[in-house]
Design a protein around this nucleic acid. Structure first.
Lengths: 226, 226
DNA sequence: TAGAAAAGTGAACACAAATTCAAAAATTGA
DNA sequence: TCAATTTTTGAATTTGTGTTCACTTTTCTA
């Protein structure tokens, strides 16, 4: 026996994996999945193309992992909001606002996640993730309807509609258009109003709004610094 | 001089073009753009691959034309509804209902039109067409707001949200799932309610509904038999 | 330090599908 | 029928990437 993986090596391996993921995320954020070819990822990560296949069985699985990580982060934030003690309408407002705002301000991972054409394997994952988003909203809706805060409705359809609504509203704005903060906030507010009305929540009377905003900020910070 | 395109030939050429389009539409309806490779299209159309390039400069342009024709038909139907004399809320209801119902019952061209991954050139066209759909709804909204039938709102955002909402609601159901008519109608109604509430239209008090349904049916028939 | 095993390389390969084009078949007018 | 011209064919070419693998380099133990 003349070789056994040392602790140092173990670390370097993990490091490599990380660099691949980071490189992919960076490329996707800059130019979508389209720009994240294996050769490019390898170049950015500073390794050879062959290396990538030591860590990921295929490009599709690499993409799925990147997508999953990013979606997971968003889901965590949204879930924190959804699980709060506020009335359903308010939580819904906060969740929509939070998602749209983050998508608008963040790097344009959003475009890739929302609509960019990809191969079917990744697409399947994307649809699954979209459903996950829907489930967060669905939970809020179920709760709201149970407590009589929202009118009875088809929560599955409503949840899907909500995800679709803010998704579509983002597609245009996200692309090359660089809008200023004022425009962005206007869009956020428009989408929020739309969604809230849609499920029969009130749009007026925003008491307690500040408290929830606080929750959002805290959650977001926790997420970013992790 | 020994050859000049005769009338008969002229006809055959046009016929060829038609067969290519029809073949493409058929393949897309059955298996999405993915299944509509040039070779497959040629096979279905009963011609050689080379022929296709005599009529279309590239696969992408062929796709765009097929997409455009299908979208155009839908737009025409929706526009007829949008231009009606009914109150804005009712027209919106009818338009959403009509679109969702047609997508659910028709061949699954809808899948291809809504979410299937395609190359960027076609994607650009799709986004444009989505915007066209949005514009129809926007027109209804503007009118409704002007006449005081709907509350003031960001009509651009609302229109985008509406398109996104019913689109997303369709994505799941459209695929391989074969639902019965009852389920389909339930979904149609759910989406309709969602969208109508979202823009601040009333959901109750559907007087005159039947009259508008009539309009829808007539328009649809005209479209199909054309 | 040797030499066994693993990590790492990147040019070569594979592959699928769009596109081309030289040659064949068909059409037309004289 | 013939020759000019166009239409049609489909095998070969092109293209762009993902993936592999024979080889090099590095890491680790005895």
């Amino acid at each position: 026996m003349a070789y056994r993986r040392s602790l140092l090596m173990e670390e370097r391996l993990a490091n490599n994996r990380d660099r691949i993921l980071t490189a992919t995320r960076k490329l996707v954020a800059e130019g979508g999945f389209r720009e994240a070819q294996i050769a490019a990822v390898a170049a950015v990560a500073g390794i050879s193309t062959g290396m990538i296949y030591r860590y990921f069985p295929s490009k599709a699985e690499l993409f799925v992992e990147v997508l999953g990580a990013a979606v997971g982060a968003e889901i965590e934030i949204l879930t924190a909001i959804a699980d709060g003690p506020e009335p359903a309408g308010m939580r819904l407002s906060a969740a929509v606002t939070c998602f749209v705002r983050r998508a608008l301000h963040g790097p344009n991972l959003a475009y890739a996640f929302i609509i960019e054409p990809v191969d079917p394997e990744v697409e399947t994952a994307r649809i699954r993730y979209r459903k996950e988003f829907g489930d967060v909203f669905k939970a809020i809706l179920i709760d709201g309807v149970e407590k009589g805060e929202l009118p009875a409705q088809d929560v599955d359809a409503s949840a899907a509609c909500i995800v679709g609504a803010f998704t579509e509203a983002l597609v245009g704005p996200i692309g090359p258009t660089t809008r200023n903060t004022r425009d962005k906030e206007r869009l956020v507010e428009s989408v929020r109003t739309f969604c809230l009305r849609a499920v029969g929540g009130v749009t007026e009377g925003e008491d307690g709004h500040e408290k929830l905003s606080q929750t959002i900020r805290t959650t977001r910070k926790r997420q970013t610094t992790k």
